[in-house]
Design a protein around this nucleic acid. Sequence first.
DNA 1: TTATATTGAATGAATATTCAGCAAGTATGT
DNA 2: ACATACTTGCTGAATATTCATTCAATATAA
Lengths: 234, 234
Amino acid sequence: MSVVLSLKGKKVAVRMKAVSAAVQAGESDKRGRKASKETRRQQLIEATIDSLAKRGYSETTLADVADGAGLSRGIVNFHFESKEKLLIATLQFMADEYAAHWGAALEKAGEAASSQLWALVAADFDRKICTKRKLAAWCAFWGEAKSRPTYQALCGARDVKYQDLFVALCAQLKAEAPYTYDAETIALALSAMMEGLWFRLMMGDGLTREKAHGAAIEYLVSVFPGHMTHQGPK
Amino acid sequence: MSVVLSLKGKKVAVRMKAVSAAVQAGESDKRGRKASKETRRQQLIEATIDSLAKRGYSETTLADVADGAGLSRGIVNFHFESKEKLLIATLQFMADEYAAHWGAALEKAGEAASSQLWALVAADFDRKICTKRKLAAWCAFWGEAKSRPTYQALCGARDVKYQDLFVALCAQLKAEAPYTYDAETIALALSAMMEGLWFRLMMGDGLTREKAHGAAIEYLVSVFPGHMTHQGPK
DNA sequence: TTATATTGAATGAATATTCAGCAAGTATGT
DNA sequence: ACATACTTGCTGAATATTCATTCAATATAA
């Protein structure tokens, strides 16, 4: 019995190292055995994001994911059912997290369209969302999205709602001050720019989150001089 | 002998259909047998772009490429040496084509920085470069680039030279008129926006090349009002 | 004990790579 | 002109590899 225990102990210890970032939320300690179904799923999703970020989509294997989570080979097919479903769940998770994040930012912002637009832009460059790790995972999915309707729907220019809201806010600002620009064009330009900045951030190049955010702000100020300053909405 | 010939003839005829877009340049007729090494390589590269665009990176197989080129299974390993090398050659080809294209556009533009900047932006949305097919192929590589130094170098924010030129032109314009913006920030914002617009174009969504180009122009005009109009540089 | 989570070896499908051989061209000798 | 040897692009079946999936055995919790 004691032999079995000590072997077990060693095994678990070795695995703990690999688990790393996973399972930050709740039920943290039920490792080794018996974590709730949801916890395990979350743990595997985090490991998937890790692998996508490190190895890219085409090199991500179930073995990587299982190793990264510190679990055995067959585990993914037990909790998800196939690799495909794990990947979809992972993308779903990221999309939900992203939507929740800008939703919350919008809540906190005031009523004014200018405050809301400012908040949306800031949310995109927030530490919580804008991690190299997560950007890389997004990018891995983007690369496959065009040829996979399921991915495309979930990536979907980061949500149709988001895009519509963007247009609405730009239109609102235009109604409040005599800008000559077409609201839809500006919304398109701004959101495309933010996507491009995300991409550059992911690629490295010494671009920082602050600099990227600064570039977006510069744009806001130059297009909506009546509403925006470098320090925030008027 | 006649039997052999007719069989051959049929085989070739069937294959011609699949070859499609490939081999537009020079040596066009040496099909069936004995096309120069370079022609064959080019043909395979075109088939690779096709496959990347249609199936995405992770689903592109050597069988797809060979079928698409109307050639046999072993052909890729004969002309390139491995799948990896085929993909690198393909990316290299696209990068070279892209660089040559904006280089030519720059030549044709006048001496003025404003004309040159205008020309660079226009070049990005030119029919020759900005095809759904090619954008999709680019995107396939982008998705893998972060985890592969070789790809990263070739994608490299579409060339360091390009980026430097961009900054230089923005700085030049700033020197000619009292814009308050930081040249580097504007160059970053503009090039990020163009990448984002490319991405959106590739994803579909009913965005057209003209609309995307229009959004970029809108930005130029709003940031450099002293130099740009919607119709062109002043 | 029973039910459930987990393991890890075995399986099989997909696919990159190899290679022996074939056929179309090319050069050399007669 | 014809025959011969030689080169080279190309083929497709065979092989090797990688990896998702399955499942019988095992460990754990209730």
